[in-house]
Design a protein around this nucleic acid. Sequence first.
DNA 1: TTATATGCAAAATGTTTGCGTAACG
DNA 2: CGTTACGCAAACATTTTGCATATAA
Lengths: 141, 141
Amino acid sequence: MKPLKRMTKQRKIILDVLQSTTCHPTADWIYEQARKELPDISLGTIYRNLQHLVQEEEIQELNYGSTFRRFDGNTGLHYHFVCRSCGQVMDVDMPVLRDLNGEAAQVVGGLVEDHRLEFYGICRSCLDKNQGIEEKKECLT
Amino acid sequence: MKPLKRMTKQRKIILDVLQSTTCHPTADWIYEQARKELPDISLGTIYRNLQHLVQEEEIQELNYGSTFRRFDGNTGLHYHFVCRSCGQVMDVDMPVLRDLNGEAAQVVGGLVEDHRLEFYGICRSCLDKNQGIEEKKECLT
DNA sequence: TTATATGCAAAATGTTTGCGTAACG
DNA sequence: CGTTACGCAAACATTTTGCATATAA
């Protein structure tokens, strides 16, 4: 973990929020959480810090088929499952496919640094209450 | 290939643009191309048709670490490589990992319908002219 | 003490939508 | 002909930015 340039209380809270949840929150959800601690924090500060933390590789950014981003406090390589019904994003605890990068490098002929793998489908809890479209949950705690 | 509800000249052009390029264009690039044929086409029409074509599974939507989407006329399962320097997205012609979905299903316990795999790194042409940051190419024809 | 970060509000970006008109089948 | 799609422009949601002030090191 590299040292950050400055650890403000705002930055600390944002990092805390991300590291103390297993969900994959949006900027807005992080904002709501952070405001419980620091009511005057601004959304601009949330975005500036998220950008900063991504650059410092303290967190990672996720992007699925939606208009907004999600963030993940877990920077280790791991895979995700996205439920098409409720929109929930969960970690998939399966072994990392280490030789994939080399395989791809042979094909594309460039430098392959890493990869990202996402699964799509319907999660168990949506299957159970097997109905049409659930209301989307932004984040489950 | 399911029949589309109506094949307007606008929809045809959008489909043509996507199917006659191996790049993975943004809505805006598609708009520029379509305007060469049909100068009065509107961006709203582009978006409406892209959405429609995704639903009909005539094209697929891609989403990477950026603020905008890309689209792909190739609906078969295949993987992508994203160059961190020039932003280009290219196909990775490697075998599809068919048993991955089953593996993930065992872990998450839901229904896993499909997966998406993306590689990140620096492409050959950026490595060759090995300089800092290239100007971003939206799409190469 | 000074560079870095903040809050606020305004701007920018990418996408969607309402409405009256056009045109596919 | 009736329904579906269009062009246009305004609305929307998310993210970024400029500026004057505050604060961590």
